[in-house]
Amino acid sequence: MITVKLYSAVRKYGGKEVLFDHKDGITVRDIVEDLKIPLKELSIIILDNFDSTPDIMLDRIIKDGALLHLFPPMAGG
């Protein structure tokens, strides 16, 4: 099982938390595409406590039991 936590505006793509069955070789990109989240709406991705930007994280393979956090960009002032 993979637990995906969505934050602020990206919650419109699945609520606060979505559970996925684990499959061999599944990547962050697979999850993001399955949830139909446009890449421009993601700023930070955390996978099992490792945080980085989408270009670094999207092709990471997710292990069974992983926790994935997805954050959108925020720029209001």
Binding site: S43, P73, M74, A75
Partner: peptide
């Protein structure tokens, strides 16, 4: 520059700014 790479606008364009957050 990393967090906003390839981004044009943030979620504030939809969620706006209520009284207390600033």
């Amino acid at each position: 520059s990393e967090l906003y790479k390839d981004k044009e606008k943030g979620i504030e364009s939809v969620l706006m700014s209520p009284t207390f957050t600033p």
